[in-house]
Design a protein around this nucleic acid. Structure first.
Lengths: 331, 331
DNA sequence: GTTCCGCCGTGAATCGATTCACGGAGTTGT
DNA sequence: ACAACTCCGTGAATCGATTCACGGCGGAAC
């Protein structure tokens, strides 16, 4: 009945050895004679010994925890990312501190301070506009950082090739015979928007067609189902008569499909729909949704790997998952 | 250009005072003359000083981080919980280490070991069957724990009143005139299943009806859309002819609605549907889904509060959000 | 003028794990 | 038999923040 935590000293006393030996058992077991090691291990067992991470880290000067700051933990997309990070950290017995910036610079700043105090081994961030300055402050403290879901040449980063994602989505629609494609896009400031648009244009040009005739862009105020619905309404009213819509993400696609159903248009025969992110629910909808899947878990893994082992930058390839919402054959 | 972290000693040297004084500035500023304090604060600023949490915690013996282990961070339901925890911890300047057990006892055990080594101030857990033994091991180390989403008399806990949730859902369906109600339930071992069932039975009895005639339970192997769909098929084949279905969660409801649409049944005129959890997507579906909302953020806040301040147990009241899937008027 | 007190500031001791220079014991080679 | 090694274990020093017993100093009280 010891409500106290046992320390190496206690273990040493119980096993009749010195603290140095206990430490050796923990860190270089091969340097300790088998008999002694057994004694020490038994003592640790009996005392329910757990090494004190603080003391360990204080001495070592280097921590076994890593911080990650993502935009919004409520978004499954980011939790999948976190999961990849965690899996990679587990390999080297590190721990993850996961923080949600909620797009709020003050929250981000607070977390960076906390992480600095924790003396984390490094920080992984999905950057917002103001992030970079703060990261250089961390660097001055000797704490490295990696940008996630963002490509940057002057910073370690892992990203997804959104040009390729946009290209795959639109190439697929073109292959299905569509010649008037609507792009329900995010704000232009978003790197993701620009890259996907570029990919879409690429695909159209590669098919020998004129982007200005084939593609029409509607910029949404926010990436919500409602704005997706409104965006589609606006596009339909314009009289251009698109036969396919490429949505900035699956939630937007959800809103678009809602409007299609409301106005009696069938998917995909009257209008094909392609989303982005391949959220869990994409496959579960009435009409399963074609979507561009981002390898978030691998992305997280790569980010953590980059931090721990200093491997080079990584750019992942997204993958188009074709389902009934854009494919006549599967209808 | 100091790639090193500054310590209290460095600050003391820069400000021309002793380390004790620097520490006093940090922890009992009122004990330090204003002039001295200003000098020290300026030195801290110049050196970009951050206190070393490890050293702090080693000395203090008590940590400013809290661990939380949830079933699945991929589930928005749990991230909302995490968010409530984090908000409460922020008030007392604590940090959260969030872990996902994935229903895997080995993962849970690993995280509990890591958290014990971190010497966390406490642990918040959404328990699985094998959890309790491990928590008592923690208690022997002096680390308190709180169960979340679970009521327990021999353990600090915060929960949601699932009896009330079940009662509200079924009372609503009864009020809409339904007299044959299907319950697509989770495994019986789940406390949640038993409580909701009890609430459903309560509601029926309160209405002066016979539960054995009004309610039929189908137990699903897993709480997925597919199993929800299969469960509904099975119930329809039985010929009982329910006019309403109460689903264990929104994902199950999604599967059920998919099957209804496939077989040409209209919601809610042929069949009313009620879900549970009120996920984000509930409101965004073709037919917006009536669902029982759990105050997850408040629950998280309460759990953290209980840990930090030792307030008494808490049981939250869920709230039925009525939408078109169960309400003729809103159709 | 002596005593007492409060105000400020000091610096050594402390927390627990790790490291490393050191040395005792035993083995091998010549 | 003695040097040269290896093998194994020791214990003091270290990391950085905090605490606390202590003391210097100035002012107030008698």
């Amino acid at each position: 009945m010891t409500p106290q935590r046992a320390s190496v000293k206690d273990v040493a006393a119980a096993a009749g050895v010195s603290v140095g030996t206990v430490s050796n058992v923990l860190n270089r077991p091969e340097r300790v004679a088998a008999r002694t090691r057994a004694k020490v291990e038994q003592a640790m067992e009996e005392l329910n010994f757990h090494r004190n991470a603080s003391a360990r880290q204080l001495r070592a000067g280097v921590s076994r925890t890593v911080g990650a700051i993502v935009m919004d933990v409520g978004n499954p997309y980011y939790t999948e990312l976190a999961r990849g990070i965690e899996d990679r950290l587990a390999v080297d017995d590190h721990t993850l501190i996961l923080c949600s910036s909620d797009d709020d610079p003050r929250r981000e700043a607070r977390f960076l301070r906390l992480l600095a105090e924790q003396g984390v081994r490094g920080v992984l961030v999905t950057p917002m506009s103001t992030t970079k300055d703060r990261l250089s402050a961390l660097r001055r403290l000797g704490i490295p950082s990696v940008l996630m879901d963002s490509s940057s040449r002057d910073h370690a980063s892992v990203g997804v090739d959104h040009v390729s994602g946009g290209r795959q989505a639109v190439a697929h629609l073109l292959a299905q015979g569509h010649r008037r494609i609507l792009f329900l896009a995010g704000q232009e400031e978003l790197q993701q928007t620009r890259h996907r648009l570029k990919g879409a244009v690429d695909a159209i040009q590669s098919a020998g067609l004129d982007p200005s005739e084939v593609l029409k862009v509607v910029t949404l105020p926010a990436l919500t189902a409602n704005d997706g619905q409104q965006g589609l309404i606006k596009a339909l009213e314009s009289g251009w008569g698109p036969t396919a819509v490429f949505c900035m993400n699956d939630i937007v696609a959800l809103g678009a499909m809602r409007e299609l159903r409301r106005s009696g248009l069938a998917v995909p025969s009257d209008m094909a729909v392609v989303g982005y992110d391949d959220l869990y629910l994409a496959a579960e909808l009435m009409t399963p949704l074609t979507s561009v899947r981002q390898p978030m878990r691998q992305l997280g893994w790569a980010a953590a790997d980059l931090l721990l082992t200093d491997t080079p930058h990584v750019l992942f390839e997204p993958e188009l998952i074709v389902r009934a919402s854009s494919d006549f054959l599967r209808r």
